[in-house]
Design a protein around this nucleic acid. Structure first.
Length: 270
DNA sequence: ATGGTAGACGCTCTA
């Protein structure tokens, strides 16, 4: 089973790139973030035609997550477990933002795997209400991940965490020092998840860092390789034991009309 | 201190 996460930065602008990535790399499960679309505006049928079950949790203009599951690999339609974490956005009265989708996937008659797709708040500028929202969201996430852990279902949490865990996960810690993505409070909240027992799949197989998953559109960041790692895959022990390989589809960042993130994937022994 | 780019939307916000 190959699980993947990809912040596509807008489905309307990215559909051709997304389709070619699915066809070329064929993930079993793909967690998408920043679809920037409402559910009824999402081109689900185009992805169904590629052989994927499609489940979306969208909103107008911003945020939004979706999960794709490969029908051709024999998987049944995903069963939704939870949509949203139950936390309002930082502005008064705006309600909850679309950042969390949790499902079970399984082949017919087999034991399910829990898949959680997240788009964690960016948190800039720091300090401020958006940063406070980020930390509150991470606390809610930790509580929910604790419940999943306790239920002992094999689980993976994938997505754009908007956290640079270590100084070797960024091209220049100095240049990014004031950014919400690498504040000590952001990192500590992330490390608490690992202390709870979750395995950072990419880090485990690349312990010395130097792996980027995001390059800003601005200031020639891609051309200068000024990137960092914020898209993560966290695994419960059973899935961590089955971890075979991880990868970043870096080449896709250099294509025409690319997202500013690259896909990240992990292959688990069946 | 600023600007650099991209996406969705609608005369601006988010990243």
């Amino acid at each position: 089973m190959k699980i993947a996460t990809f912040n596509i930065n807008g489905i309307k602008a990215r559909l051709p790139r997304l389709k070619e990535w699915l066809e070329e790399t064929r993930p079993t499960v793909a967690c998408l973030q920043e679809i920037k679309s409402q559910d009824d505006g999402f081109p689900g049928s185009e992805l169904e035609d590629l052989g994927y079950h499609v489940l979306t949790h969208g909103q107008k203009a911003f945020n939004g997550v979706a999960i794709l599951v490969d029908k051709n690999a024999g998987y049944s339609a995903p069963v939704e477990v939870q949509r949203g974490l139950g936390i309002d956005g930082p502005k008064d009265g705006e309600g909850e933002q679309a950042r969390y989708l949790e499902i079970d996937v399984a082949k017919e008659g087999e034991r399910p795997t829990r898949i959680v797709c997240i788009y964690l708040p960016n948190g800039n500028p720091h300090p401020g209400p958006k940063f406070d929202y980020k930390l509150a969201w991470m606390e809610k996430l930790r509580a929910r991940m604790g419940e999943i852990w306790s239920s002992e279902v094999p689980a993976a949490v994938l997505g754009d965490f908007n956290v640079i865990p270590h100084d070797d996960d960024v091209w220049s810690p100095k240049a990014m020092a004031k950014d919400a993505l690498m504040q000590p409070e952001s990192r500590d909240a992330y490390f608490r998840l690992l202390a709870d027992g979750w395995t950072d799949a990419v880090r485990t197989l690349n312990p010395r860092g130097g792996v980027w998953t995001y390059w800003d559109y601005q200031a020639g960041a891609w051309q200068r390789d000024h990137g960092f790692r914020i898209d993560h895959i966290l695994l419960t022990p059973e899935l961590a034991d089955r971890l075979e390989a991880v990868g970043v589809d870096r080449e896709h960042r250099g294509r025409e009309k690319a997202s500013d993130h690259t896909p990240v994937w992990a292959r688990l022994r069946d």
